[in-house]
Design a protein around this nucleic acid. Sequence first.
DNA 1: GTTGAGCGTT
Length: 386
Amino acid sequence: MFIRVADESKSNNEIVEIPVDGGMDGSVSLSTLAAQFQGVSALKYRNSETSVWRGVRVADGKLYHPDGVWDRDTIYVTVYSKPVLSDIKRKGVGEQQEESTISSLGQAKTQRLDYGQETNNESENEPDHRCVDLIVLGISYRSLEADVKKCFEVFGELVFCEIKRDANGQSRGFGFIRFKNYESQLAVINKRHFIDGRHVDVKIPDSKTSAHEPEYARKIFVARLPDNVVPDDLRQYFSKYGPIKDVYIPKPARSFAFVTFHDSNIVRTLFGTHIIHGCSVTVGPAEPKNKLSAIGDYPSSTFKRAKPDHSSLRTLTTYGTSPAHSHYHQQYGQTANTDMMQRFFQQYGTTTATTNSSKGQFSNAQQSYWSSAHEEAAAVWQQHYR
DNA sequence: GTTGAGCGTT
C-alpha cells in the first residue's frame, strides 16, 4: 500500500511512492517520509470539493489522513516547516510605518499599501502562483521603456520593465516586464495589448516553461463537463493552480474540454475529480492518441505571429481550401487557427484504435471510464471531420 | 535600412 507524494520545493515534481503502515486506512510514518524528503514536516493535498489545500493530521511522528483513509490516486505534496518569515517581515514593515508617521502623510499611505501587498504575496507563496518575468513581443522599435510601462501599469504595479537593445542601443522589438502581484500577471498574460500603434503579445518566456516538452504534457482533458460551462468558467477555476495558456470547449458543447497550462508540473496534480459549477468533472491527461500528426511537432502558441513558409501556415491554407473547412467552421462556429488545427489533427487525426496509457494514474474503473471518454471524444471529432 | 519573428550580455 503506497501513496503518491510530490516534493513542493523541487521544480521537477517527481512523484515518490511512500508506504502506508497496514492498509490504506493506516498511518504514514514521518521518518519514512523524511527518508525521501529531507526536512519534511507534513503533507497537504487539494480538497477536490473546495480546491483548497488541506493538511493531513500529524501526531506522534505519524501522519493520518483526515478522512480516515488515504486515496491512492491523490498526489500528496510535502510541507516543510520554515522559519517564520512573516513575523520578521511584519516587524520590519511595522518599524517603517512608525518612521513614516514622522514624515509626510503621503509616505504613510504608501507604506500602508506596501504592507497590504506584502501580505498578499505571502498568501501567493504557492508554487506557480508567483510572478515571473514576462516576455513582451512586438514592441515598436520606437517605443521606450516608459511607453511599455504606461501600458501595463494600469494592471498593477510593475517591479521590472526592460526593452532589449543591441550594442548600438537600437531596440530589438521585445522586452520583459514583471508585476508585483500575481493577479496583474494573470490579467495581462496571453492577451494582446497595444503600444505605439502596434499590438504586443505578453507570454511566459520559454526559459520559464518546459519548451522541450510536447504541448499535451501541459494539457488536461476535462470529461463529464456540463454543457453550460463556458471557457471563462474553466479559466477562472483552473487559474487557481497556475498560469493558463489556453482553454478549449468544442462548439456545440460535447461534455469535454481541454485546458492548457504554461507549466507541465501542475498538470499531474490535477488528475482526478473536481467540482465545477456544482458538478463533478473528471480531469485526466490529454495524451494524443498517436504520434502521427498532419502538422508535426512544432510548439503551438495562442498568438503565433504570421510566419511565412511555416508548415503550420501551409497546413492552414490547405485546410482552409478543403471541403472539411466549411464543415468544421459550420460545426464549431470558429475560425481555424494553428492551435485548433493542432488539436484537430494531433489529438484525433487518424485513428482511435490505440488505447490511452495512463501509466497507472487511475484505478481500473477510472481507467476504463477514461478510455471510453477519450474514444467518445475522438469518435465525435472524426465523425465531423469525415 | 526605412525591418517585424523571436526568447533575456548584467
